[in-house]
Write a protein that binds this DNA or RNA. Structure first.
Lengths: 142, 142
DNA sequence: CCTGATTTTGAAAACTCTTTTCAAAATTTC
DNA sequence: GAAATTTTGAAAAGAGTTTTCAAAATCAGG
């Protein structure tokens, strides 16, 4: 009863002559369970609860693997540490970050995307990726 | 023949019981001369050419001072180091970053701003600041 | 199901960028 | 000018992340 994500990971691993290990399975399972945007340290703590012997370096390495295999997406909100969100079967979106409680809301706005393309084209620029972060106060914190 | 920016810095300094030093003047003058988005290290190198005795820590401290006094704006493009741009008398804008040559183009799009407010309001979110970075390839690199 | 080549692991060290510490030097105030 | 306070440069510390290295695990092929 492996998840689709586990299959993606296994495919990536075999296609790149890497090896499936219990650490990688464990980190993936814990990552899939957390619905929020986790940092490496946070994920490490969660993983440690189930598999106390797994080291922090392995979590970092495994997150890099997830990013390469498109299972995870790396986010940088400028607070000094990277965060990771699920990417497999999740469509593109932007983020609103509450600077009070740290909550992260996801959103998309088709017209914003459209105008981004427009302004890029006007400058002869081809967009490969973008990052839109709105910082502010969420409804709960007001 | 002090620049307006130098006056802003001096006002901020006196209003906060800080002290005007030749290091701070020197760093500001060099910062004002560079039109691109500089990192602390880059600015340190430029400053060193004119004032070799100024230390890196002083450049970091002075950039923090510029940020507090609204002379500079801190940017983080997610490449591991912060960059600084002039803020005094410069209006808000977003950035396009060429991942090939590192060139940074500035732009604004009133409708993008408007829709950001709209989507935030729809979620009960009050924006205090935002960050829109488009990564891609500029016209020169294609 | 061994065996051997290769990869992965955990722990610690290294690294990068930034901040802090501390005693000496500079600035401002009276 | 002298005293109180701030700033400085150099080095150490810090935070987050990556790398190193020897031991352990994985996985082909026989």
């Amino acid at each position: 009863m492996d998840s689709k994500e586990m299959e993606v990971l296994q495919d990536y691993i075999t296609q790149n002559n890497l090896k499936i290990t219990k650490q990688r399975r464990a980190v993936l399972n814990v990552f899939l369970e957390c619905e929020n945007h986790v940092s490496a340290e946070e994920l490490y703590k969660l993983v440690s609860e189930k598999e106390p012997k797994i080291g922090l370096a392995t979590v970092y390495r495994t997150l890099a693997l997830f990013t390469q295999s498109q299972l995870a997406h790396e986010l940088d909100f400028g607070d000094g540490q990277k965060r990771y969100e699920h990417q497999f079967m999740h469509s593109h979106h932007d983020h609103m970050i509450c600077t009070e409680c740290g909550k992260i809301l996801e959103f998309t706005h088709p017209l914003i995307e459209k105008f981004q393309e427009e302004v890029a084209a006007r400058n002869g620029f081809t967009i490969t990726s973008h990052k839109l972060h709105l910082f502010g106060i969420c409804s709960d914190c007001r």
